[in-house]
Computed example of a mutant assay.
Amino acid sequence: MQDLQNITIEHTASLRDTMRVLDRGSLRIVLVCDEADELLGTVTDGDIRRSLLNNANMNDCITEVMNKTPTVMLNNTSISERLEIMKSLDLLAVPIIDDKGVLIGVETLAQALKPPKRDNPVFIMAGGFGTRLQPLTDHCPKPMLRVGNKPMLEHLINQFISFGFHSFFVSTHYLPEVIRDYFGDGSKWGVSIQYVHEDMPLGTGGALGLLPKDRPNLPIIMMNGDVLTKLNYAQLLHHHEAHGFDATLCVREDEYRVPFGVIETQNQLITNMVEKPTYRYKINTGIYILSPEIVDSVKENQRIDIPTLLEEHRANNKRIGTYTSYDYWLDIGQMKDYQKAQNDIQVYFKES
């Protein structure tokens, strides 16, 4: 919200007074209010130009010039809705009012475009050997292989940054110095990056036990570092919190069509015949949100895989849920996937 005093004027002000306020402001809009701060209208450069062309006098009351039916938004209008309104109407600023019409702020396009700061830690697994991508990974960790003109790990971090995340942990094992030398402490990207090193592979979940205990007491987003995705992490986090899950697995719907007729039998008698059936199922994307309690349940240097960890907590009545994503996602596990990523980066990522 901008400082309203700099862009607000009383309804008794003249056209000349309003022009002075408009001149010293940076939003190219003046808000006209009555004694009770109720919004009566708005004035822009265009309103003033049109009034002068219609022979308005500089001493005329601004209520004769102002737009009496401006676009406004209520305080409970979501950021996404505000952004959509401003983009669709080509507006740089819109007044915010309460349900009684009292002015309480003004939303700007610049503010709406800026993501809210999110303190939830992000934990990226980047310690694998990448043996299926040899010889490319002989001297380079798989997450540091370039897709377009950036390492895939950098694409991943940039995507998180676009949603307001700023605190990163990266697990390393194979060629850790390549990752550390490139990213450092993250200050080049305006974020914090800390590293946890696995002296020996601890499975897909064991590195959780190496995280510092003084991290924020918030759900942590954990994922593999060899993924290219346009996942909306803000929606994923909101889904996790809204459902009160202790852990959330991000999944995708996939299907497989059998190219033959399938015969089902019992005691050698046919019970059903299906011609080229399609089977649908959900696959694990390797992206999780974990509560602090689940993270802290992993002991230091404990070897454990994520499915085992989550199954243990599910057996203890923890709420383990799913979030189905329809965003672009590619697991770069094999050479054909890496080659596909080089083409996809031009389509799905502007930063390429």
Rank of each mutant, 00 (worst) to 15 (best):
L231P: 11
N232G: 02
N232M: 03
Y233D: 06
Y233V: 10
Y233M: 06
Y233N: 05
A234Y: 10
A234M: 07
A234T: 12
L236G: 02
L236I: 01
L236K: 04
L237I: 05
L237E: 01
L237N: 00
L237W: 09
H239L: 01
H239E: 07
H239N: 12
E241L: 14
E241K: 14
E241I: 13
E241R: 14
A242W: 15
A242Q: 14
A242P: 05
H243R: 07
H243A: 04
H243P: 00
F245K: 00
F245E: 00
F245P: 00
F245I: 11
D246H: 01
D246N: 02
D246L: 00
D246P: 01
D246M: 00
A247Y: 06
T248M: 12
T248K: 01
T248S: 06
T248W: 09
L249G: 03
L249I: 14
C250M: 13
C250T: 02
C250A: 12
V251D: 03
R252E: 09
R252L: 12
R252Q: 11
R252H: 08
R252C: 10
E253S: 07
E253D: 04
E253N: 07
E253L: 14
D254G: 09
E255C: 05
Y256Q: 06
Y256R: 05
Y256C: 11
R257A: 03
R257K: 06
R257I: 09
V258T: 13
V258P: 07
P259A: 01
P259W: 03
F260D: 06
F260G: 01
G261P: 06
G261A: 11
V262D: 12
V262Q: 13
E264S: 08
E264G: 02
E264I: 07
T265A: 12
T265C: 05
T265W: 04
T265E: 15
Q266S: 12
Q266E: 10
N267V: 02
N267S: 03
N267E: 04
N267M: 00
L269I: 15
L269G: 14
L269S: 15
I270R: 10
I270G: 06
I270S: 11
T271Q: 09
T271F: 05
T271I: 07
T271P: 01
N272D: 11
N272M: 14
N272R: 08
N272K: 12
M273F: 15
M273N: 02
V274F: 13
V274S: 08
V274H: 13
V274D: 10
K276W: 00
K276N: 05
